[in-house]
Amino acid sequence: MGEHIQKVLYVEDNPLNMALMHHLFKKNLPSVLLLEADTGELGLEMAEQHQPDLIILDIGLPGLNGYETLECLRRDSRTERISVLAISAFAQLSDIAQARQAGFAGYITKPIRVKAFTEIVQGLLAERGG
């Protein structure tokens, strides 16, 4: 039986942030496959299709925002158990508390602190059995 390749879906509408994430994964998490979507709607489709081990979801998306996307993920039996990590430039304690209350597994603020981010992602992936 082949080894499970861990997959992370990154939902982000900013191409610069997407490029940064690609670089970060290539350098710090090279064995993890990074999938990408630039809208919440596409993120939902890709989550259903690819069943990622983790979703990193930008809060400030056009169309379905991060909270609405999370709500849709939780209502779908195919995606309800996937850990979802919020990422946002909103860094107030109230923003973080709101994300936790909504059911995000964690909250990363932009700009990303690479070491902390990598550790959080590795921890969430380890919980999924990787």
Rank of each mutant, 00 (worst) to 15 (best):
H22Q: 15
V8M: 05
E68M: 13
V121C: 01
M18D: 03
E3T: 11
A91Q: 11
G40R: 08
G103T: 09
Q6H: 05
V32D: 07
E119G: 00
R81H: 12
E12T: 10
T69N: 06
S94L: 07
E45K: 09
R113V: 14
K115M: 08
Q122D: 03
G63Q: 09
Y107L: 14
M21G: 04
T79Q: 05
P30W: 10
V114M: 09
I120V: 14
Q49E: 14
V32N: 01
L29D: 06
C72N: 07
T39S: 14
S94A: 13
N28Y: 13
L34S: 02
I55C: 04
L35S: 04
E48I: 14
C72I: 11
Y10R: 01
N14M: 09
L54G: 05
E71T: 11
H22T: 13
A19L: 13
F104K: 02
I87L: 12
K27S: 10
L34P: 00
K110I: 12
Q49W: 03
A126H: 01
G129M: 09
R74K: 14
L124D: 07
L42D: 12
L54T: 10
Q101Y: 08
A102E: 10
Q101I: 14
I96F: 03
L34C: 08
T69G: 03
E68H: 08
K26F: 09
I56A: 08
D95N: 15
G130C: 08
L24Q: 07
H22R: 15
A47Q: 04
I87D: 04
A19T: 13
I120R: 06
Y10F: 12
L54I: 11
G66T: 08
E48A: 11
F117Y: 12
A37T: 04
Q98L: 10
M46C: 03
I5H: 03
D38H: 05
T118P: 00
L16F: 03
Q101S: 12
S83Q: 12
G63Y: 02
S77G: 01
F90L: 10
N17Q: 15
I82S: 04
E71F: 03
F117W: 11
L20W: 03
G2P: 01
A97V: 15
L85S: 02
P30F: 13
A105G: 00
R128W: 01
L35V: 03
I87W: 02
E68G: 14
R81I: 13
V8L: 09
F117Q: 12
I59L: 15
S83L: 13
I55F: 05
G43P: 02
S77L: 13
D58P: 01
E68P: 00
G66L: 10
D53G: 12
A99F: 04
L16S: 08
I59S: 10
Q51G: 01
M1N: 04
I55M: 12
L20S: 06
V121E: 03
D58A: 14
L20M: 14
D76S: 14
C72V: 11
A89G: 14
